[in-house]
């Protein structure tokens, strides 16, 4: 019984982890149809922000929950103004330009902080025990934060006027701009928010994974496959794909080991895309958010 609970929790953490690293990417992709290949580097920058701030004496929670999203959000807005906005409607060029950006960020961070791991910080909050097994309390917190983040995004999109304008722009940008919405500003804000959420995710994961200039590569493969498998709907897509892929990965990893877990994740995603080329929400629940 304890074993089931412990394994279940581990799988749940895997799912939450997947959703956390994918949400920022999903927002930018779902709203703007821009695939941000610098996503992994946004996560990396969030991680660095936390590590540097914590080493400078800033409270860890402030660094993770406020500084990381703020810094990366600002970087996101700058990137959107300088680079992305010239490329709207040219999907492939956007893809290439953000890839260049990703290399650029890796280069800059390597030049400043060196290629090896920056001073790491240990995860706060000790452990909780489930019968004879223990689990990190910080992982539990991450699950909670992921759920809270999902709910927050849902509420912003559904309840606020910003969310309404954003959804309108997403559905029909031309009509929205004819009705007096500054679509360019909506895109800027959306990109900034997507970047901020990526920064938050990177900051939250920094104590678990440590930070490296190239750590983005660890995340992006999983984040991409989750977003693509999820399809266009931001929340439903990310949630359903995370549950499916994270679940498969967790179960396979528990039964055989982490290597097979990743293979199972990839194979599931490929089979899924063969059956539903436009992702889960391209096939099922189309009207969802």
């Amino acid at each position: 019984m304890d074993l089931v609970a412990a394994v279940g929790l581990q799988i749940l953490y895997g799912i939450a982890n997947l959703a956390l690293i994918s949400l920022g990417l999903a927002i930018i992709f779902g709203m703007m149809r821009v695939i941000n290949l610098a996503h992994g580097e946004f996560l990396m920058l969030g991680g660095y922000t936390v590590v540097i701030a914590a080493n400078a004496g800033v409270n860890l929670w402030v660094a993770m929950l406020i500084l990381a999203p703020l810094v990366v959000g600002v970087i996101g807005v700058v990137v959107e103004r300088l680079l992305i906005r010239w490329l709207y409607g040219r999907m492939i060029d956007t893809l290439l330009a953000t890839w260049g950006l990703s290399l650029l960020f890796i280069g800059i961070v390597t030049s400043i902080f060196g290629a090896s791991t920056a001073t790491t910080i240990s995860p706060p909050l000790g452990v909780v025990s489930i019968g004879e097994y223990t689990s990190s309390a910080y992982e539990l917190l991450l699950i909670g934060i992921t759920v809270a983040l999902g709910i927050a995004v849902f509420l912003v999109l559904k309840m606020t006027s910003l969310g309404l304008v954003a959804r309108g722009t997403m559905q029909n940008a031309e009509m929205a701009s004819a009705l007096g919405v500054s679509t360019s500003r909506v895109y800027m804000i959306t990109f900034g928010i997507g970047a901020a959420i990526s920064g938050l995710a990177g900051g939250l994961l920094a104590p678990v994974t440590g930070v490296l200039p190239t750590i983005g590569a660890v995340y992006i493969a999983k984040a991409f496959i989750t977003v693509i498998s999820g399809g266009a709907a931001i929340l439903a897509g990310t949630a359903s794909a995370s549950v499916l892929l994270g679940g498969v990965n967790g179960i396979a990893a528990f039964l055989t080991g982490p290597t097979i877990g990743e293979v199972a994740l990839l194979v599931t995603a490929i089979v899924l895309l063969r059956l539903m080329p436009r992702g889960i929400t391209g096939g099922l629940f189309r009207k969802s958010l």
Binding site: I220, I228, L266, P277
Partner: peptide, 27 residues
């Protein structure tokens, strides 16, 4: 076969091929 017969289009295709490469890397 999976991509073309699944009618996976440009950008998705790019991301899938990249992901395959990265997963092979970590594997």
């Amino acid at each position: 076969y999976v991509m073309f017969y699944g009618r996976v289009s440009d950008v998705y295709l790019a991301v899938i091929t990249l992901t395959v490469s990265l997963i092979l890397y970590s594997l």
